[in-house]
């Protein structure tokens, strides 16, 4: 089976990279192909990188409170580029109310503090499994 490819990205000015690095390593240990964007990316840069790397999943980490601006922007750019088969996930400090609004926009998995990396791995595997086979 083809390896799942995921872009792990830090959006905006937020420098909190502990979580994104821990999750990236756990995903790599679980057999995924992980591309890490590094810090301080605009939504445009993230979507461009996801296109270039032909990923199945984009995981965005935001702990600065800008998630309600940045995640919808990324979602919009993904739609514009026809990336309907790419899953957008998020991690960070995201209040429940925002979570349900983001889910309505099509952000698939939102993981907060205390989530286990196992949970995240299983979620990705099951969501990618639901997608139609890509050619």
């Amino acid at each position: 089976m083809k390896k799942i490819r995921i872009l792990m990205a830090k959006a905006g000015l937020d420098g909190h990279d502990r979580g994104v690095k821990v999750v990236a390593r756990a995903l790599r240990d679980a057999g995924l192909e992980v591309i890490y964007s590094g810090l301080h990316n605009t939504p445009e840069q993230i979507v461009r990188a996801a296109l270039q790397e032909d990923v199945d999943v984009i995981g965005v980490s935001i702990l600065s409170g800008a998630h309600m601006t940045l995640l919808p922007k990324i979602r919009e750019l993904m739609a514009k580029n026809g990336m309907d088969d790419v899953i957008l996930m998020g991690g960070g400090i995201i209040p429940d109310e925002d979570k349900s609004n983001l889910e309505k926009l099509g952000v698939k998995g939102l993981f907060g503090p205390g989530a286990s990396t196992q949970e995240i791995v299983e979620f990705i595997k099951s969501e990618v499994g639901k997608q139609p086979q890509r050619v």
Binding site: L13, H40, T42, G65
Partner: peptide, 11 residues
Amino acid sequence: AELSLGEVGVE
């Protein structure tokens, strides 16, 4: 600035 989007006065 472009990168300031969504972050002004938040943190």
